[in-house]
Nucleic acid binder design. Structure first.
Lengths: 136, 136
DNA sequence: CGGCATCCGCTTGGATACTG
DNA sequence: CAGTATCCAAGCGGATGCCG
């Protein structure tokens, strides 16, 4: 091995040190499963620009169902990533905002988003080529 | 808002600039969906430490089924993240390795893993507290 | 060894209707 | 407005058996 950057090597080492046997109950796997959730990170990024109310989030993320929005917000609250504040007005309003923990994931997640926007064109190209060869 | 770091602010800005209306066909969403795949990132990290053969990967990731391993490897190959090399021995052997594109995701993904190992204890605590209050 | 094909259970998640 | 409750379809993914 090879042509990887030193930074990458470092992460690989840490990974190997932290995961042990990669069995399902390794704590990092647990967090990764959360991150893999279809909507979690999208909601975190939506709340990153400020606290928002339920239907306001819904409008900003058009293709989430109300059920999934409720459920994902509750999960994020359970994990201490989002706090929920109810205002006793009528009609009642509920505001969601990132906790410090929730806000702290923005940076590492931002790296991934940066990677995605830099490389999605490469992925598209690779996919076209792959599908072209499969058809031939 | 406001106790976020400047780096976080930068990512939030970029996010807002890049996603437009967050509709399902935004390219960043597309890449994020791939990353959200249950096994993709696990396999990338497994291959990060060097090229490996099919059953070797299976042994290192004990709880993936053969079907999902085949399928995920093919998807990664399609996306240009992994290359597949067949050796014409008997019995035949097949080696998978990261492409430069696949290797390039290790660094941003490493940031997320670092966050996970630093914060999973906070998440566990938050979860215990939340569940305790729910029971009360 | 490294797959592919089939079957099938179970979860995920959407649509709809109702509540405080 | 901000949910809860119920029903139901689609697909993810496991188990098994077969092939080159």
């Amino acid at each position: 091995m090879r042509t990887l950057s030193e930074e990458a090597e470092l992460y690989i080492e840490r990974w190997n040190a932290s995961v042990g046997d990669l069995s399902g109950d390794c704590p990092v796997r647990g967090v990764l499963d959360k991150i893999s959730d279809k909507w979690s990170m999208l909601l975190v990024m939506t709340l990153a620009s400020g606290p928002k109310r339920f239907n306001q989030i819904r409008r900003e993320v058009p293709d989430i169902s109300q059920k999934m929005l409720t459920q994902t917000l509750r999960d994020l609250q359970r994990d201490g990533m989002v706090s929920r504040q109810v205002f006793d007005t009528k009609p009642p309003s509920v505001e969601y905002r990132l906790t410090p923990l929730g806000a702290s994931i923005i940076v590492p997640f931002g790296h991934l988003i940066a990677w995605a926007s830099e490389n999605h064109s490469h992925i598209d190209e690779a996919r076209l080529e792959f599908d072209g060869q499969a058809a031939a």
